[in-house]
């Protein structure tokens, strides 16, 4: 077995163990399914963990109503294929108040349509554990994240009260009103995810692959004009460019990158050299020392 396959096998076994521990320890767990590559990989591992039984948890998708259409199509395909139960939750109050990324501002929009919606859904269905696909290599605060991470009443995260996590002896007990977040792929890196997708032949959204798409340039960011809700500037016209997405989310908030990687193999290739391309885009705004200093104080590497 080559080294990469050997590493993936160990990572996968750990993730399977975490899924099983969650199934054995909680009354009503749920998989937070964001449609992205990480949660799709998570879903794949969950199938392995419980085979030949089906995955014993439903999927929860927080629908902000601003996702790419392709994401929703992909979600429904996956749900059908894995025979999962899907709960798509929308914060109806947010829809009623027309909370959108343009008028409400990004942070308020994110709070209402993502954070509040998630809390609502968890409370509504009484889930006591929510499995998420975040990874320690994503950012600094995540580097300290537990595998089983307790949330206080109201789903608040109190970093000072996190339980020490030793060995693989997980403390899964909850006090009244507490809930748990579980991160089964904490130790995976972005490259691991892509290698695994390639190795396991996992279907991911076509948005990850390069294609000619209608985009406008805002600052340094390429935004795909998904529908006529996107307010174009006067005289602005979307142009077709060969782009793909590195992460998926709400289309007005998720920038595309120029890329020719139209197969998973090519994406893996690109990710392995991501240092270069990431640098290239960051150098433009990051070469200035002030912004770097600022990022550092905010926890930047």
């Amino acid at each position: 077995m080559n080294k990469i396959a050997a590493i993936l096998k160990e990572l996968e076994a750990e993730s399977i163990e975490i899924f099983r521990e969650t199934a054995a320890s909680f009354k009503k767990p749920v998989i937070m399914y964001s449609i992205g590559k990480d949660s799709t990989v998570m879903l794949h591992i969950a199938r392995k963990a419980f085979y030949p039984a089906p995955i014993p948890f439903p999927l929860l998708h927080i629908d902000t109503t601003w996702q790419f259409k392709e994401m929703i199509t992909f979600r429904d395909e996956i749900v059908k294929e894995t025979k999962s139960q899907l709960i798509a939750h929308i914060n109806q109050a947010g829809v009623r108040d027309n909370i959108n990324p343009f008028d409400a501002g990004i942070s308020e929009y994110t709070r209402v349509m993502n954070t509040v919606a998630l809390r609502e859904a968890l409370d509504l269905y009484g889930f006591d554990a929510a499995l998420g696909g975040s990874r320690r290599d994503e950012e600094k605060s995540r580097a300290k994240e537990r595998i089983f991470s307790v949330r206080d009443p109201g789903h608040r995260w109190n970093p000072r009260e996190q339980r020490p996590e030793l060995w693989r002896t997980y403390n899964t007990r909850l006090a009244p009103e507490q809930t748990m977040r579980v991160f089964p792929i904490n130790d995976w890196t972005e490259a691991d995810i892509w290698h695994y997708i390639l190795q396991e032949n996992i279907k991911v959204s076509s948005l990850y692959l390069a294609k000619d798409r209608p985009v406008v340039k805002r600052g340094d960011q390429l935004i795909m004009v998904e529908d006529d809700r996107y307010p174009l500037l006067e005289g602005e016209k979307p142009t077709m460019q060969r782009v793909r997405f590195r992460t998926l989310g709400c289309y007005p908030l998720t920038a595309a990158v120029e890329s020719n990687a139209s197969t998973i193999e090519e994406v893996v290739e690109e990710v392995l050299n991501v240092k270069l391309s990431e640098r290239a885009t960051r150098l433009i705004d990051g070469e200035n020392e002030d912004s770097m200093e600022k990022k550092k104080t905010e926890g930047y590497f």
Binding site: N2, K3, I4, I7, R136, D137, K140, A143, K144, P159, R160, Q162, N186, D187, T189
Partner: peptide
Amino acid sequence: TIDVAYRSMKLLDGKR
């Protein structure tokens, strides 16, 4: 909060 931070790297022999 002081805590344990985890960081992954690739060794030259391919191990993690």
